[in-house]
Simulated scan of single mutants.
Amino acid sequence: MATPGSFAERGADLRLDQITKSFPGHTAVDSLDLTVPAGSFFALLGPSGCGKTTTLRLVAGLEEPTSGTITLGGKDVTDTKPYQRPVNTVFQNYALFPHMSVVDNVAFGLKRRRIADPMTKAMEALRLVELEGSASKRPAQLSGGMQQRVALARAIVNRPALLLLDEPLGALDLKLRHQMQLELKSIQAEVGLTFLHVTHDQEEAMTMADTVAVMNGGRIEQMGSPQELYELPRTAFVANFLGQSNLLDGEVTGTDGDLLVVRTDAGSLAVPTARAVTTTGRVLVGVRPEKLKVRTAEPTPEAGRNILGPGHVVDVSFSGVSTQYLVEVPGAGRVAVFAQNSKGGPRVARGTEVWLTWGVDHGFGLEAPPASGATPTTQPAPGLQSAPTVGAVA
């Protein structure tokens, strides 16, 4: 393995100031301000068309911004040509030369730039990704995951100030993708380079990145650590894109100590004031499905717990590690619950009358949409539907 930090000679921070990119009839990136600290693993996460790939192309120099500035390591590179920027990109399709050996692929850029001792440096990069034993092979002789590691070694060997990852694991199967997520994170920690990772896969972003910026409509909706974004989303979009949430429309009627009291069509609910984006008027009371418990007998009201029900189980989906229940609750619509299968398979059958409870501290409050009559949102987010969960059934 390479000496920790040996590839980090030129690591630098990235700063975007009021970056806008407009195309005819469409603004892909809208007045974007973003700072990626040197040496961090940073993810831009969002659905197709949100502007994340355009942002990556702007940083790489493959697109020119309509306005704004891009600074890398304190140097303005807004008008710098792509080949003049200390940036390398790892693409989903690897783009390896099929007629060259693995080590020649890695050394190719070094040779073109007439860097001294290119083969030694290439072998060092291959050792870092644990492929030195495959140096003489052709790309076609390697698995998809191994080819991805070759592409990564080829990028790292150039010692870029910034490494851009454009959906790098999208072509891999699920098991290999999970393995590569851990390997990429380990390699980034060892080499110390700045990684900017663009992806639509929530699990991928949460697994690898130190900081995640969720993009929507060319803007950043929310930015923070994966845990912060998941536990305390600030918008309905983030709540349902990064995982899955139940959102119940209600009206703030007052406070009870450090809690907001919210009247919904399904009854009165409480939300910590500190976990609410807005504290007056209409709000959405949110709770993650794994925070809910299913009760087959009416629970006794107690301080610190919300109760919904009675309702009826309308769907039961077994996914191995957990079971997802959909519960129809009058006034609340369909509410999703994830229960961990610690004692076998599903324990509540379809049609059973149940009550739902959750700790008040697990909820959050969001600004309600302008339109009236909003209904709970339990839309699953791609990539996290089968994520391990910790609900309970009693």
Rank of each mutant, 00 (worst) to 15 (best):
E290Q: 13
F7R: 08
G73N: 09
Q379I: 11
I156G: 03
G68I: 01
S319A: 15
S6F: 05
R15Q: 14
D117G: 09
V191I: 15
G217D: 14
I220A: 06
V129G: 00
D265H: 11
R305H: 10
L284Q: 11
N306T: 07
L164S: 10
P160W: 12
R282V: 00
G243D: 01
L232P: 05
L164P: 12
D17V: 11
Q227R: 14
G218R: 01
V287R: 05
A135T: 03
S225F: 09
A213C: 13
T66W: 02
V271E: 04
Q202E: 00
S225A: 13
K111P: 08
V271W: 12
L131R: 08
F41E: 09
K137L: 15
R234G: 15
T20W: 00
Q202C: 00
A151S: 12
A371L: 12
T80A: 06
D33C: 06
G281Y: 01
T323Q: 12
K291I: 07
G144H: 11
A43G: 11
P65C: 01
L62S: 07
I307S: 07
A122K: 11
V252S: 04
R114Y: 00
P24N: 02
A274E: 14
L45S: 05
H178N: 01
P160H: 13
P37I: 14
G391E: 05
